[in-house]
Design a protein around this nucleic acid. Structure first.
Lengths: 208, 208
DNA sequence: CCTGATAGGGGCGGCGATGTCCCCTTTTTC
DNA sequence: GAAAAAGGGGACATCGCCGCCCCTATCAGG
């Protein structure tokens, strides 16, 4: 049973990070704090194995190198035995080094951090490596969400839209089958169901 | 059937916004773009009723008032018939006014925007009001996520932890019953199940 | 002593998501 | 022309979440 604390002032991002952590950690308890004060209060009351810190908190100057590092430093001191991961919207090499020296195990930019990335980072950290990810604008393909589709149906559409030229649909079904540990025929079934629903609403993206 | 596009460079925030929109809009199709170029490409290919814009995109100077407004202006021009909502991490009065003049229907700060807020904003916009929300550091109570709990179970724990002094558990059950349009006895049932699970893991928060 | 809040069980029907297996036709590709 | 890919559908069982129903027991305060 892992115990984690996420410190992030933007509620939607906080929720997303907590969900990401939950998916990565399996059996776990995850707390979230939106302010510096609340974070310290929680750290004083409970023990945590993992702390995720966004140094851009209300009450601190987000452009002040010193202010941001103060946040990181005091949080790390408040939970010295935990693994600390710094996640920021505006990343710099200087800050990354400073955080590493303060004892953080990872320094990640929010831009470029996508679903599943946190899992890779946690794997890296578990191998005692310092995980460093600067912001990257990977152009990518558009993301799409349809109401009325089940998670499996959404996923297969997502994978098909991100499909490379020359890759057959069958290949994608295989990939999804491996990813979810199911039968490729089942992936295909989800695709067919999703396609039928999208056709009914006339919202079938090009290329499907 | 609503069609919406979300333009936001941070993938996790993009996902969160898309989910929020989906929950608020009901039957809908939602696309997401992480870059300025991709956004314009999508807008050129499809029609949208609603566009959510974060002006802090890669390739533009996030501190440049002009750069940010250029993003907002060109996006609005690319979809003149849509409702436009600007969501930003660093909000200013000046930028809010400028966005309003450019034709945006709302100007929202990411900090202070929590789950459900978007729904209220959309209601406001539907009444042809300009929705303005500057950043607010509402201290609040800690948020908690437990793996192994169902959504209902999580929700009732959340509500109980946010409970005011003097408020009985029964009151909270009633509140949740109204919120979800179910029986108060059912809320209580979820609480009991959640409590049993938390006790099993020894992670029962104080006050429950 | 009775009421109300709290704590702790069990059961039941409905529904959607999941995952597997089966059938068929048409189009594309080699 | 044969094979592979794609399109289109149905049947079936399992499981978890949901929402409601029932039962008991403890404990505090009026």
């Amino acid at each position: 049973m892992h115990r984690a604390l996420v410190i992030e002032d933007q509620d939607l991002m906080l929720q997303a990070l907590m969900v990401e952590l939950k998916d990565s950690l399996g059996d776990c308890f995850i707390a979230g704090a939106q302010t510096y004060e609340l974070a310290h209060q929680i750290l004083a009351e409970d023990q945590f194995d993992l702390v995720v810190i966004d140094p851009g908190l209300p009450g601190f100057d987000p452009t002040s190198h010193k202010d941001r590092l103060t946040v990181v430093e005091t949080i790390i001191r408040a939970a010295p035995s935990a693994v600390h991961i710094v996640i920021t919207g505006s990343d710099t090499h200087k800050e990354a080094s400073a955080c590493r020296e303060l004892g953080a195990s990872a320094y990640l930019a929010k831009t470029g951090l996508s679903r599943g990335s946190l899992r890779e980072v946690l794997d890296q950290v578990a191998r005692s490596e310092f995980s460093l990810r600067y912001s990257a604008a990977d152009a990518q393909s558009p993301e799409v969400h349809f109401s009325g589709l089940t998670p499996r149906e959404s996923r297969v559409i997502e994978l098909l839209l991100a499909r490379q030229a020359g890759e057959t649909k069958r290949d994608v079904f295989e990939k999804m089958a491996v990813e979810l540990n199911i039968d490729a025929a089942s992936s295909e079934k989800y695709y067919k169901q999703a396609r039928a629903k999208l056709l009914k609403f006339g919202r079938l993206p090009r290329g499907l």
